[in-house]
Structure formats: C-alpha cells, structure tokens
Computed example of a mutant assay.
Amino acid sequence: MKLFEILLVVLTLGSGLILLADKLFLAKRRAAKAGLLDGDEPAVVDYSRAFFPVLAVVLILRSFVAEPYKIPSSSMMPNLLIGDFILVNKFSYGFRLPITNTKIIPVGEPKRGDVVVFKPPHAPDQNWIKRVVGLPGDRIGFHGDTLSINGQPLGYQEKGEYIGKGPGAEMTGASLLTEDLPGRTHTVLELLGRADPRGQGDWVVPEGQYFVMGDNRDNSEDSRFWTQTHFLPEENLRGKAFMIWLNCSGWFCKASFEPSRIGTGIQ
C-alpha cells in the first residue's frame, strides 16, 4: 500500500512537471521551428497530458476523501469479514499529506466506538483496523470476558450462537453478544470462559493516544497485547471506516462472493 502511494505521488508530480515545462518552454521552442505544428509534441508530453488529470483526481480522492482497503483477517468479526472491501473516510480526523501522513488541517477526533484504520506503532509499514474503546485519559480494564471503562463494567446481552457463512464460517459456534460502549452499541464475538490471560489487565490511556480492540475478542492482536506500548498514537491514524462496498475473494470473485455485504454501513 505504501509503495502504491509513493508511486501515485511520483507519477502525478512527474506528469504535472512535464506539462508545466512544456507550457513554459518546450511548446514555444516547437512553435519557433519552421514547419512544425503545435500538435507535433514528444510522446512523453502527450502521455502526460492524457494521464495527469486522472492521476491527480485519484491522488486527491485517495489522500483527502476516501481510500479503499481489504479486510485480510477475522479480528473484526462479526462486523467485518475476511474479503470485505471497505471505504475509509480520510478527513474524519483531519486532512493529512500523502506518504508522511502529516496532519495539515485538524477536523475532528476519534470517538469511542469508531472503527479506525491505522499504522500500528510496532508495524508502521502495515495498515490495521480495530475499534476505539479508550480515549485519552480513560482507565481501561479487561478481565475475564468483560471490558470496563473508568471503573464501570460494560453491559452485555447474549444473542445466541454465531452461525457464520462464507468468509465468516471459521467462527461458527462462538457467542454473539452486544456490547454497550458509552454512546455506541455494537456486536462482538467471544469464546466465553476462554479469554487469553495475556490480554488481561488495566491501562490508563495517555493524552494524544487511544486504546483499540478487535470485535472478535479472542482472535485479535490489539492494544491488550502490544508490548512496546499498549496505545495507538493519534498521528498513526489513517481514517474512519464507514462502508463495505464489496465482499469477494479469488480472481473475479470466483472463490466467494457475498452480494448482501455491498453497501453495508460500518457501525
């Protein structure tokens, strides 16, 4: 993903500079030569003229409006499945420069319950997706199968056994629960009574950082398990996931295709 971003920026800038140089210098030289028509321009200028508008539009949309991602793991089940193609709002938490991810215009901040795409502090070359459960200053606790925020255990309601299909079949038999985050209710999967003891503990979220967890509580490498730091720095955010636009796997979706996922909002 980072390589594509760099390549897109380089091609956009390169083609734009070629067009600028042609307008300021090369076109005048060609016009000054007897017998040459305005249309007799080098192939590189011709290609730049054709591709620059497309590249510029893609770069602007991808960097400042919305960026597509594909879900590669089961850590956000039952809400996001393997093979989901999602769109991420790039300006929810501020306008950022491509490649460096430097914020240039602050817009908003993550809210508890937001599903966010980010670069984990221990793997900055990767993009991960989790749910924000802890805001700066929060006291987060996770003991047994229960999440608590500022000393208050969250409420849970059992919705029965999860029956997965297609990309979600691997978690069939897990308990499907609703979790009442303050201001946001969503579903989670848990293998009740089988919580990993390594993910138990209490944490205080520092200023400018967040505590994130996967909805598939027993199959998620999230803030509970990060060793260098348990927190996600604000500057590592890429955006807020808001919609599933496709779910498929394999060439031309031959392996699987779930039309019911198309256009589904992410809660």
Rank of each mutant, 00 (worst) to 15 (best):
G263A: 09
S223I: 11
H186D: 04
L177G: 02
H143T: 08
D84Y: 05
T187E: 12
A169R: 15
G164H: 13
P42E: 09
E234H: 12
I6Q: 08
G144R: 03
Q157S: 14
L55K: 04
L97Y: 10
M171S: 14
L189Q: 07
Y47Q: 12
A66S: 13
F25G: 10
F95W: 13
F51E: 03
N247H: 12
P153S: 00
W245S: 02
L192V: 13
C248F: 11
L189T: 01
K165M: 08
M171F: 10
A34C: 07
Q126V: 09
T229C: 06
F225T: 08
M171V: 10
A174W: 13
D38L: 11
G250H: 04
R96F: 11
G166Y: 09
M171W: 08
K90C: 06
V132F: 00
P53E: 01
K165D: 13
M243S: 07
G199Q: 06
L8I: 07
L36D: 10
V65M: 15
Q126A: 14
K2Q: 14
K90L: 09
A27K: 13
Y156H: 13
S148A: 13
S175A: 15
M243W: 06
E207H: 07
I6A: 12
V132Q: 00
E179H: 02
D138P: 03
D138W: 00
S73E: 09
P121G: 03
G39P: 04
G201A: 05
C248R: 06
V107G: 00
T264I: 06
N219W: 10
P72A: 03
K159S: 09
Q209T: 11
Y47P: 03
W245M: 08
R29Y: 11
V205I: 01
D38H: 14
T227A: 14
F4R: 15
L20K: 07
K103N: 11
L97M: 15
I99K: 13
W128D: 09
K165C: 03
I266A: 04
E234W: 05
P197W: 01
K159F: 09
Q200V: 12
S148G: 03
Y47S: 11
D215T: 05
K103I: 09
V132I: 12
A195E: 11
A21F: 12
K23V: 15
L3Y: 15
N150K: 02
T12H: 12
